[in-house]
Amino acid sequence: MLGIVGIVVIFVMVFGGYLLAGGKMAIIIKAMPFELMMIGGAGVGAFLISNDMGGVKHTLKDLGKVFKGPKWKADDYRDLLCLLFTLIRIARANPVEVEQHIEDPENSSVFNRYPKILADKEAVNLISDTMRSASMNYDDPHQVEEVLEKRIEANLHHALHSSHALQTLADGLPALGIVAAVLGIIKTMGSIDQPPEVLGKLIGGALVGTFLGVFLAYGLVGPFAGKVKSVVEEDGHFYSLIREVLVANLHNHAAAICIEVGRQNTPSHIRPGFSELEEALKSVKQDAA
């Protein structure tokens, strides 16, 4: 919703200010289809050259994040802590029983309490792989933390591809706008024998190319790239929380301490309150009983 509001504000302020200053839209409207064809077409072509099909699909999919925002909300962080708490308690009480949950999460009564987390394969695999490693005596906390850190960094790097692709496109749009403007000037020079009022319109149409290149770069595509990056990085905290809790578990801290470590490492604006989490964990214990 905020993204839509931002786009509306950009258009209203830019074109509204232009009209209030006495500008006329006729020249822009007449030149815009051709300028957009050159600038937008060249931008799309350059985007296709610099990305493979997977990158193109990934970028188009991630554009929705500008309007939807982060995938993981405050309630999801609370649910994740409850899920990890349950798995840690089961693993310490009965290591054989926990294997049933981490080997087949789809049919696990524990994972199925949290369908949104279960639907995220990376989160489930991160939990299952780490707990499976601990059951195989690969339980050096520092080694596991290093492995998880590299895995999370690799996933984040891949997730940020669409942001980098959009930013690259934004960086090139002003130059493409200049290309369109130069072509417009060339066209104008071919009509140098026309009266000043005709030449003025031709020059104005040519300058629309420069305007559109800069406007699209800094008013739309660049902010889209920044928003996608922000959302991806915020969602990355969800996987970092898994790392913090499971590494604390390998240090043999009490289950409640492991969960508190995770809660404290959650960004403040989505961090579950201490009392709220306590109530949720009590409910988990009652269900288990």
Rank of each mutant, 00 (worst) to 15 (best):
I49Q: 10
N51E: 08
D52I: 04
D52H: 05
M53C: 01
M53T: 08
G54H: 03
G55S: 12
G55Q: 14
G55W: 02
V56Y: 03
V56M: 14
K57M: 10
H58T: 03
K61F: 09
K61S: 06
K61V: 00
L63V: 06
L63W: 05
L63T: 08
G64V: 01
K65N: 08
V66Q: 02
V66M: 05
V66A: 05
V66C: 09
F67C: 01
K68R: 15
K68L: 03
G69R: 02
K73Q: 11
D75H: 08
D75W: 00
D76T: 04
Y77W: 14
R78E: 14
R78L: 13
L80Y: 05
C82P: 02
L83W: 13
L83P: 12
F85M: 07
T86G: 00
L87Y: 01
I88F: 13
R89W: 02
R89A: 09
I90S: 04
I90C: 09
A91G: 10
R92W: 15
R92K: 15
R92V: 08
A93Y: 06
N94L: 13
P95L: 06
P95I: 04
V96F: 14
E97V: 15
V98A: 02
E99M: 14
Q100R: 15
Q100V: 15
H101F: 05
H101R: 10
I102F: 13
I102S: 03
E103A: 09
D104M: 12
E106G: 09
N107H: 15
S108I: 04
S108A: 11
S108Y: 10
S109I: 09
F111N: 03
R113I: 01
Y114K: 04
Y114H: 11
I117S: 08
L118T: 11
A119I: 06
K121L: 06
K121H: 09
E122Y: 15
A123M: 06
V124Q: 09
N125K: 15
N125G: 11
L126F: 13
I127S: 07
D129Q: 10
D129H: 14
T130D: 14
T130E: 14
T130W: 12
A134I: 05
M136V: 03
D139Y: 03
D140F: 12
D140P: 05
D140L: 02
H142Q: 11
E145H: 01
E145Q: 06
E146M: 09
E146S: 04
E149N: 12
E149L: 00
K150A: 01
R151C: 06
A154V: 01
A154T: 02
N155W: 00
H157T: 12
A159M: 06
A159K: 08
L160M: 15
H161Q: 08
H161Y: 04
H164C: 03
H164R: 14
A165T: 10
A165E: 10
Q167C: 00
Q167N: 03
T168C: 10
T168H: 08
D171N: 10
D171A: 09
D171G: 03
D171Y: 07
G172I: 10
G172T: 08
G172H: 12
P174S: 04
P174R: 04
L176G: 02
G177C: 13
I178C: 07
V179H: 04
A181F: 13
V182E: 13
